[in-house]
Design a protein around this nucleic acid. Sequence first.
DNA 1: TGATAATATGAGTAATCGCTCGTTTTACCA
DNA 2: TGGTAAAACGAGCGATTACTCATATTATCA
Lengths: 207, 207
Amino acid sequence: MARKKGLVPRKQPVQSRSKATVEVVLEAAAQVFESGGYNGANTNLIARRAGVSIGSLYQYFPGKDAILYALMKRHMDMGYEFITKRLAGLGRGGVDEVFVRALVEAMLGMHEMEPELHRVMFEQVPPTVMLPQELMRNEAAAVERLAAMLERTPGLRKAATGEVARFVAYTLEMLCHRFVLYGIKGLDREGFMDETADMLLRYILAD
Amino acid sequence: MARKKGLVPRKQPVQSRSKATVEVVLEAAAQVFESGGYNGANTNLIARRAGVSIGSLYQYFPGKDAILYALMKRHMDMGYEFITKRLAGLGRGGVDEVFVRALVEAMLGMHEMEPELHRVMFEQVPPTVMLPQELMRNEAAAVERLAAMLERTPGLRKAATGEVARFVAYTLEMLCHRFVLYGIKGLDREGFMDETADMLLRYILAD
DNA sequence: TGATAATATGAGTAATCGCTCGTTTTACCA
DNA sequence: TGGTAAAACGAGCGATTACTCATATTATCA
């Protein structure tokens, strides 16, 4: 087991060559985690793959978990930025079919970015790396935005908007995760989107 | 990383005391995996916790993954037996509200059995242990049964029953998993069941 | 250009863990 | 009851891995 060390970087790179070192380490780490999973990765291997000495790696990261944490943070920030852009300007008048379809497409697109890395992150990461709430802020904020939209939606189901938003968000996230990483037999991309959007919309607009 | 060894037991215990040894090892392994996760577990620790020598452990299991695999198999067999019992006799006339509610309750109940062990199994297990299709036979069979019921259901949605069955099964499984292990803010057990059953039923009976 | 700070290096150490194997103990049964 | 097979034992070896630190190299800037 990784001796528990912190997740925060040890020192910030100030010169451009050290910024490049950090960059190349993260790049190599992504490859190593993707190809060997969490347990197959170790700091020596990452350093070698990066073409950097093990000492240099430890200048910036206290250990393997810290590298993974940095990768996850970057991955998730990218993902939520992607979704935010895709949904910009939509749903002002509340949640409708157009919005839900866009939401499904955006979430699906997000899961299609770096899918192998995504798998390692969400299926093999030890709780110590995953727990920090900072990683979840984006998700929480997105759920809040969805709840606000539901508030403006005419013909909403009876349950409170916060609960409906969470229910929808979690369902959608999990379905996309599964579809991208394992597929759902009999459903192609279009079919998946149709079924998902239809199910969620019927749920949201029930009553 | 665990050197890759097989997952199958090395020798079958024949005398009763060796059966007891295997039993006590599995029991200890469950505790160790639960409290320290996959990475926190090792064979030496499991043997010590079991009050058994490391040599004895290796008589029956080729390594840590094999022990985990045995635990998973047992856990999943228990789970599907539970569900099968709960649903016995229901849904003969097709899928209706009564059946869906029973299905949700059964799936939820299954997830409430050994939840911490369940978490380790489904969130931290390396693909080498999880992949073997044998573990998935139960699931596949359950989906088939559900598809057969949908076939007999009047007023079904237009999509093919196999796809609908998979979609429903995966959604339900994931929602229960999330609810039991992390909760969904604002939803208690009753509320969760109501929302889930409602969403799935509306989806199934659409059109 | 020289002083200082930043960065890079990698051999080496300590700790962990997987697993074997020679030996001892226990059970079985003819 | 004695011979054989099953089971249990655990010291310790080999491999892996995390991480340090003394040293060398490079950048910065007054």
